[in-house]
Design a protein around this nucleic acid. Structure first.
Length: 250
DNA sequence: GCAAAGATTTGCT
DNA sequence: GCAAATCTTTGCC
């Protein structure tokens, strides 16, 4: 009876990894995001992703403004440092595939697998600037926030909250997934295929190349040096949507 | 089979 | 500015 109709959250599927969609389809680079941009060096690919669009079909779109690069098995901060496991196996596959995992037991994180198969690298999407489907993002965010929470005061958990500025709806890796309804069922999805419910689109022609700033990655203090200090968090300098609370993006 | 830590976010002091 | 919430995955006995 775990199949409740309303909330489709597969809480009971703990003992079994979620079924994955078909891995790499034919080469749809012509219509989707060019896989070749993700097959090369991860840091170059990360630069290509800034300014690109993340599309959640049918109508949610955001401009990618912050990413982090995890360059391979030797990277002491990467999940790939432990070798292939049930969780990270898609990192060891071909580029352009989504790697989605759960962190701290509650937040999902979306990565784009890079470099050829057998080289386990990926790029974490840390923040997007909402462009379309803002109301749907807002609703999804509210839903994820109140999920499973009691109502201790009785006046509604959301009642006292102030409205979140649109620019901050997806200003963090967990928020990106919450706003776009991304969970582990998206693990293994082809992000280069324009038919995927979640996919990438190139930066529009009229869009100028963003000014990029590099800083150390966030939350990787457990990693040995030099990995913990490598400036592999890339962000768009003038974007109001980069992660961080009251701090500015530096 | 059990224990520890985590690529985060939020709310309160 | 600090600590809690929450549960999966990994590492070790």
């Amino acid at each position: 009876m775990t199949k409740a109709a309303g909330d489709a959250t597969p809480t009971g599927a703990a003992s079994r990894p979620p079924s994955r969609p078909t891995l790499v389809a034919a080469d749809d680079a012509e219509r989707g995001f060019p896989r070749s941009l993700l097959a090369g060096a991860t840091l170059d690919a990360a630069g290509s992703l800034l300014g690109a669009r993340l599309v959640r079909a049918p109508d949610r779109v955001g401009r990618i403004v912050e990413v982090e690069a995890y360059i391979g098995a030797a990277d002491g901060a990467s999940h790939a440092r432990m070798g292939p496991t049930p969780r990270n196996q898609v990192m060891f596959g071909p580029p352009g595939i989504a790697y989605v995992y759960l962190v701290y037991g509650m937040h999902h994180c979306l990565n784009v697998v890079t470099e050829p198969a057998s080289h386990p690298a990926a790029i974490l999407i840390r923040a997007i600037e909402p462009e379309q489907g803002v109301e749907m993002m807002r609703a999804a965010l509210a839903r994820s926030r109140t999920r499973g929470r009691a109502d201790p005061r009785g006046d509604g958990p959301v009642a006292r909250r102030r409205a979140i500025p649109t620019s901050r709806l997806a200003a963090g890796p967990g928020l990106v997934c919450a706003a776009l309804d991304i969970d582990r069922t998206f693990d293994g999805l082809d992000l280069c295929d324009a038919r995927s419910p979640l996919h990438l689109e190139l930066r529009p022609d009229g869009d100028p190349a963003p000014e990029i700033l590099a800083t150390p990655r966030v939350g990787v203090g457990y990693a040995p040096e030099p990995w913990a200090s490598m400036p592999w968090r890339l962000l768009v300098v003038d974007s109001p949507s980069v992660s961080g609370r009251s701090r500015r993006g530096v």
